[in-house]
């Protein structure tokens, strides 16, 4: 290379290296390390022992793993419809100009900027079985409140409620932006044709909102499969393992049971599942997502 060539190469390097070096050190190398670890039995202290694909084989047949995936799925199954329907309802209500709209929007968004640990602690306290205010309010209307996060049957619903409460504003803002992008003329034309409000919503608004809906579903599933913070704070995976999700399992395998290899293998299984689900959605979107 001539002198100008070298100077250009140096320029490119100066622009790229500040991100490429840390990306290599703190993302690419750990990725490779994780794959390597997943092929070993390792307690983080003694010598690593090569076990090939045994960790993967063991995990696939392991009831604990299956339970963790089931708990994660039941979390998503409860959370996603709740947050989507709630967010959509709010977005529709706030779509038309109304007094105090931007204030309301700000209020609904407040939990989104609040850290997960705070949200989980606030809800743990609200849903406290003894002296918690939710059960007191339920008592006022003659309902005897459940044990919430202390009851295996109610622990996951408690986590779902807290999560939906936190993410409602986010979903609302995304859908509201989608609604605002729908040209008013479509609605007006349908109104002239005498379509009822429900039919206009069902046949105009929902299809034209489908790109935003798609975005919400993709993001919620990616985050939902990785749910951890709120679980760790509210139940720690309990009671009796009732809310042990996949990431809690990864955490416990590493730091409680000294099985870093199995934990790495499980994290790759989780990644494969998330990737698969995302690809299926992107491929399937042609069937129902309308880009108007």
């Amino acid at each position: 290379m001539n002198r100008r060539g070298w100077r250009y190469a140096l320029t490119v390097a100066v622009f790229l290296l500040p991100s490429l070096v840390p990306l290599t050190l703190y993302t690419l190398i750990p990725m490779a390390g994780s794959l390597w670890t997943s092929l070993h039995e390792w307690d983080l202290i003694s010598e690593m022992r090569w076990v090939g694909l045994d960790n993967y084989a063991e995990l696939i047949g392991d009831p604990g793993t299956r339970a963790a995936f089931l708990h994660t799925l039941s979390f998503i199954a409860g959370y996603l419809p709740l947050v989507y329907v709630g967010g959509l309802g709010l977005a529709v209500l706030l779509n038309r100009p109304m007094r105090g709209r931007s204030l309301l929007r700000g209020v609904y968004f407040l939990p989104v900027i609040t850290s997960w640990v705070v949200v989980a602690l606030m809800w743990k306290w609200l849903l406290n079985p003894a002296g918690g205010i939710v059960n007191w309010a339920l008592g006022l209307i003659g309902v005897s409140g459940p044990g919430w996060w202390t009851d295996p049957a109610w622990a996951m619903p408690s986590i779902i409620i807290a999560t939906a409460w936190k993410d409602l504003g986010f979903v609302m803002i995304i859908l509201l932006a989608g609604l605002q992008a729908i040209p008013r003329e479509y609605q007006e034309a349908a109104m002239v044709d005498g379509a009822t409000a429900w039919r206009r919503f069902r046949h105009i608004t929902l299809p034209l909102l489908s790109p935003s809906t798609f975005f919400v579903i993709v993001i919620s599933l990616i985050n939902g499969f990785q749910v951890f913070d709120q679980v760790q704070i509210m139940t720690g995976g309990g009671p009796g393992g009732a809310t042990q999700v996949v990431v809690s399992q990864i955490y416990d395998l590493t730091f409680r049971y000294g099985r870093a290899g199995a934990a790495s293998a499980l994290s790759w299984l989780l990644f494969a599942l998330v990737l698969l689900v995302t690809i299926v959605q992107i491929r399937g979107q042609r069937r129902w997502v309308t880009y108007g």
Binding site: S19, Y26, P30, M31, S34, V247, S264, S267
Partner: peptide, 24 residues
């Protein structure tokens, strides 16, 4: 190709990275 590598890391969930990152 390098940009594709950047994008690939974008899809890495944090749980995959934390254990090896801790070890590192």
């Amino acid at each position: 190709a390098l940009f594709a590598v950047y994008l690939a890391t974008l899809m890495m969930p944090l749980p995959v990275l934390v254990v090896p990152l801790f070890i590192e």
